[in-house]
């Protein structure tokens, strides 16, 4: 199930999820978003316009979290799980911590970069050291121990998080070749047991 809020990469995320063995449905229907086995918030774009787009299903997402059903955020979709963003605008605040502008010689952080796992997680099974594709100028800075992988862009940047039934990746699995496919397969397995 993909929460549809006008994100540009809906088509490619759907195609990638289908390749990973899911039957993706794009929806803005609150009941569907509450009940689906897994909700993916696929995101590109400006966090403020993404948050606006997501507003109609926000309540359904909160009920989903209360019920402990899994959500996977991708890129801006992960940033939306957190709190205020340097980009302007605010996420859902389901996880604690801000979204900060990257400090590096080159921003956006654009291209393939290796995942460095921070702790064991079935989401990242088989992905240690694999190159995945990033395209972002902002990154989450979680309070608490939710980061499961970092990436080096003149310092450690959070690349993936997991906390209870919430997971997120800053990179684009739908655009990360075989490694991205593996992440989505892992995410489907995780969602079945989350």
């Amino acid at each position: 199930m993909l929460a549809d809020y006008g994100a540009g990469n809906t088509r490619s995320v759907c195609a990638a999820l289908a390749r990973a063995g899911a039957e993706p449905v794009v929806s803005t229907e609150p009941a569907e978003i509450r009940e689906a086995p897994l909700v993916v918030i696929a995101g590109v774009g400006h966090v403020a316009s993404a948050a606006r787009g997501l507003a109609p299903v926000e309540e359904a997402l909160r009920q989903r979290v209360t019920a402990g059903r899994p959500i996977l955020g991708i890129c801006v979709g992960m940033q939306l799980l957190f709190e205020e963003s340097d980009e302007g605008g605010r996420g859902l605040g389901l996880l604690a911590g801000p979204v900060r502008r990257l400090e590096a010689r080159r921003v956006p952080h654009m291209g393939w970069n290796a995942l460095a796992p921070a702790r064991d997680s079935r989401l990242l099974d088989g992905l240690e050291g694999e190159d995945v594709y990033f395209a972002h100028s902002f990154a989450v800075e979680p309070f608490g121990d939710v980061a499961i992988a970092h990436v080096d862009h003149e310092g450690a940047v959070v690349a993936a998080i997991e906390s209870g039934s919430l997971a997120g990746v800053q990179f684009h699995p739908e655009r990360s070749g075989a490694a991205g496919a593996r992440l989505l397969e892992n995410a489907l397995a995780w969602s079945r047991s989350a």
Binding site: V44, G45, H46, M110, A135
Partner: peptide, 9 residues
């Protein structure tokens, strides 16, 4: 364009 889609796009 950057305001709407993010400068990374």
């Amino acid at each position: 364009l950057a305001d709407e889609f993010g400068s990374q796009a």
